[in-house]
Design a protein around this nucleic acid. Structure first.
Lengths: 333, 333
DNA sequence: TTTCAGTCTGTGAACGCTCCCAGACGTTCC
DNA sequence: GGAACGTCTGGGAGCGTTCACAGACTGAAA
């Protein structure tokens, strides 16, 4: 790679000093129109690009943000929701010339690496994804005072880590109410992990509507994966063969539930109605297509990024943002 | 954030000079066991972490790699294959303490940003994903002499940008041969975009087996999306209503083709056999489950990263790697 | 003893930027 | 006419590293 022009070269070409070039670069006031023009021209002529390392060295700002994915390696990304979030984040951050570094936090080694990375001052902010309750990494990040926000609440840290999220609880209520309205009488649910907000709150919403009818026998837990949906459904069927509906806390698990039901010879929705959650891409491809709850994922991602940028820009504390969900009726319920 | 210890502090704590600390940090020879131990202890005591910016400033190495996703924004990540690649890349790079920055290159503005980023020296290497033929960004990157590899060949640059890929052509042959062996007589195909290696080579493999029987009338093009699979299938059915099999160049498009076939009242596989490609997660959830070609995606990703690291480490030119595919028989064919 | 090679250490000089200060210019106002 | 202020500019210092070099200390060979 050829030697790149430095701020010195630009200054020389423009006939001004480093200081002046730096001022126009950083949009400072106090630079004359003539100098401004000369510098702009010199920048274009020399093809100058500021060296972020040198800049970071003195400003202590890096111009990058790290997204931390707290899933065991084999599960990361299985959920298509990640995609939307990552895409949105990259785009919005990119507009501000902030770059996105992605790190995995699936095991202790990973988490230590994340902490070291952040402690090393390599990121201006942290974007937490699917962080589980009680994760010690969060405490460490917290103690460093680095701007951090979560996409979806961090259970137990709702008041210390700001977040944007869909209204999981109300979404679950919408679906449960719908199943009730459809005349279903024995409604079961497959929840997500109970250390995630989606796991907890979607179950709460379910219970809100059903009250005492939401008995322990009608509740099974999964871990968001398709496979876990299959086995949870199997357990439910065994315990309560006469159930006539199931609210599954994610589309992917619902896809798993569907295959178990099919294998067991139950017709969907005739014998058993199935409701999903997410309205992810799988929802349309299952057979029958899933009736589900749409989360405004792109909006959640946008808001998360907005919160983080606000935090980085040093505005005071920011408030969590909760966005409404919507029932999407297809054929499974 | 509290003031972080510098190499100076470590040197003072260990009773040696900056130089010696730097030497143990960079695993240089010529440092006495006593000094080495003292420095190690001082590092632990002070909680010292090297400042990458300062280091990069002098070494011209950044310790990060940028992955460039060349899809229009709305399509990025629709293909679940991305996930595997990203996950693998993060993991393998992480082991070497190299971090991964992800950038989108969906429009001209994006591509310019990527070029600026790389020209700015912010990455030690570039990992190209789904780059389309004739992309001017590639020429620019090439002219900068930055280590670059592609995950899947860059059409037209096969000899200048090293890559790792699945054996698309042979995979297509495997599927086509299988359809022929099953007694199918009128076999159509839905290809990917003809400026991508998967688009081109899977069609070539198809033609390899069918010879002159692969007539223009039996070929339709999609753009990897589910929707494009639906419409391509519709066009095929209209033109050749009596086709009895279709090889679709991706599972996602195959899912689209399946719904079109279902809507048209064709039974799969009885009336029409459908073969996919990728063995991505959708393959198992379609109805019926897709017979498809498994790509060793994780291996491809591993190899891509390996190539890039080799290039960065300054070994001479590296050779492309092509990995074998495998037929997975399910129910659609 | 001198010479030499090998090991180990400290130090000044970069790397490319921003920040801060001093100073040169106007103006405007008393 | 000079004080006071706002605008604009240049240059030194410093951010935290690595690198190259010089020098000190060994032990072995001449």
């Amino acid at each position: 790679m050829a030697k790149r022009p430095t701020i010195h070269d630009v200054a020389a070409a423009a006939g001004v000093s480093r200081g002046t070039v730096s001022r126009v670069l950083n949009d400072d006031r106090y630079v004359s129109p003539a100098a401004h023009a000369a510098v702009r021209r010199a920048i274009a002529e020399t093809g100058y690009i500021v060296n972020r390392n040198a800049r970071s060295l003195v400003t202590q700002r890096t111009g990058s943000v790290v997204m931390v994915l707290s899933e065991p390696h084999e599960k990361v990304f299985e959920d298509p929701n990640y995609s939307t979030t990552i895409r949105t984040a990259i785009r919005r951050l990119g507009e501000r010339d902030v770059s996105l570094v992605i790190m995995l936090a699936g095991d202790d080694g990973d988490r230590e690496r994340v902490v070291r990375y952040v402690r090393g001052g390599h990121a201006d902010g942290v974007l937490l994804m699917s962080t589980h309750a009680g994760d010690p990494m969060v405490d460490e990040l917290e103690s460093m005072r680095i701007p951090a926000v979560a996409c979806g609440a961090v259970v137990g840290k709702e008041n210390v880590i700001p977040y944007a999220a869909a209204d999981d609880r109300e979404g679950a209520r919408q679906m449960t109410r719908y199943l009730v309205e459809q005349g279903r009488r024995k409604i079961a649910t497959i929840t997500g992990p109970m250390d995630t907000p989606g796991g907890i709150q979607r179950l709460e919403g379910f219970a809100d509507v059903l009250g005492r009818k939401a008995s322990r026998k009608l509740i099974e837990h999964g871990d968001w994966t398709q496979l876990s949906g299959e086995s949870a459904m199997a357990r439910l069927l065994e315990r309560t063969p006469d159930l006539d509906a199931v609210f599954v806390a994610s589309d992917l698990m619902a896809a798993g539930a569907l295959s178990t039901l099919r294998a067991a010879g139950r017709r969907v929705p005739d014998d058993v109605a199935v409701g999903g959650f997410d309205d992810s891409s799988v929802a349309a491809t299952t057979h029958p297509p899933l009736t589900t709850i749409r989360q405004p994922l792109a909006d959640v991602a946008e808001e998360t990024v907005r919160l983080l940028l606000a935090l980085i820009d040093g505005g005071g504390p920011v408030d969590p943002v909760i966005l409404p969900t919507r029932l999407i009726v297809r054929e499974s319920a």
